[in-house]
Nucleic acid binder design. Structure first.
Lengths: 217, 217
DNA sequence: AAATATTTTTATACAAACCTAAATATTATT
DNA sequence: AATAATATTTAGGTTTGTATAAAAATATTT
């Protein structure tokens, strides 16, 4: 059984290796993401590779092994099911669920998670629009098109958000960004990537950074 | 905020100091209960008393301070609410809920526990018949009369169980011991304290140890 | 009350997960 | 290709929670 810390490393490696083109994941990037010292990561990588959870050799690229990937997906499944529970059953808001789910995802009980899934009606997506991995490890791809890639003049539907920080989600809700909302791009400013959008009948300007964290279809 | 280990010590001290007549709680008993070395307990007691969570001096009696009691009750509240959730909402059986609740009780979120309480309909008792402490720390006393104290010839109702181990609860369910069940004592054997009982229309003999773990009214 | 037994504490150590600072490897620049 | 810059690892420490073994305090027995 992986410890909580180990599970968090595997989850981080999983996320950072999603749609990464070009350069491979290495120690510093992982350390930055986890907000811990690179030396700590270096030690942990050794341990994880001894346990066969990652493929890694000194000064090399970091990637999950099959068994590491399996654990990462099961933690992701737990995280997203708990988020759905908090949102659907306990009335938590969008921006409150991530933090609590970060704790709940490490509870060890297969039965708990199976029954929770059942209670929630075997949901396919969590409240942020992210797909929930199946018990057997099957997992839909996350959406690919972000609002920052959207074409001027076209209409889109918001299908998910990339970032789950309270700060982002609070702002997002405030300006009307929510799943299923219809959105269209009026114009984009090349200088800073900011764009004028039409949402809820309101016209707004949002920064590129916001646009990069909204998936549309 | 107390760590998980600290919370577990406080909980243990709380339980061991319930209806204790005569000798006071000391290091060895706590170590036995927690299944760890007495030296470890000795170190932790120092830390807990420095933090003001227990009253304790070397070689002396161990008791919770007011703030320690508050934490113990809040953990107990969380434990019992989670047990109720697992039983009522997820269909766990009597003997499966304790173990998982031991993990869930350490999740830190006031909102989570308030909303959970609400979802469950503000229950007063958990599935083992134990009272659930209120958010303000109000707490009913646990039942006092065990089956082993019951009088021969009288009829009782089962109101709670003392022990939450899977082994005990599985046996208990198997012979028909469940909350609200009517039970009467046919005879008691002075030699070993075993007793013949009438339960569910069936006559059975149970050991003193079992009888001590069943509360009746 | 002295001797013995038991309980509790202290001293020392270990594993997990983190840190800072120094050493070494790799990568980029001139 | 040599040097400089950057990334990574290694060495040595800290904290939390645990353990064993030895020392000290308390309790029991004769």
């Amino acid at each position: 059984m992986a410890t909580t810390a180990e599970e968090n490393y595997l989850k981080a490696i999983y996320h950072l290796n999603q749609d990464r083109e070009g350069k491979s994941l290495r120690t510093n990037e992982l350390a930055d993401y986890l907000v811990i010292a690179p030396s700590t990561v270096s030690n942990m990588l050794l341990k994880l590779s001894e346990k066969g959870l990652i493929t890694y050799k000194k000064y090399g690229a970091i990637a999950l092994s099959d068994s590491g990937n399996e654990i990462a997906l099961s933690v992701l499944r737990k995280h997203r099911l708990w988020e759905t529970f908090l949102y659907e059953k306990l009335g938590f808001s969008w921006d409150e669920i991530h933090e609590v789910a970060e704790e709940l995802e490490h509870i060890n009980s297969q039965k708990l998670i199976d029954k929770l899934d059942e209670l929630l009606g075997l949901p396919e997506y969590d409240p942020h629009g992210d797909p929930i991995p199946k018990p057997n490890g099957e997992h839909k791809d996350t959406f690919k098109t972000t609002l920052s890639m959207a074409r001027v003049g076209k209409a889109y539907k918001i299908v998910a958000v990339k970032n789950s920080s309270a700060a982002f989600l609070q702002y997002a809700s405030q300006i009307g960004i929510e799943l299923e909302a219809n959105i269209s791009v009026n114009s984009r400013l090349d200088f800073d990537g900011s764009m004028e959008i039409e949402l809820d009948g309101m016209t707004r300007t949002i920064s590129q950074k916001i646009a990069e964290n909204v998936y549309v279809d």
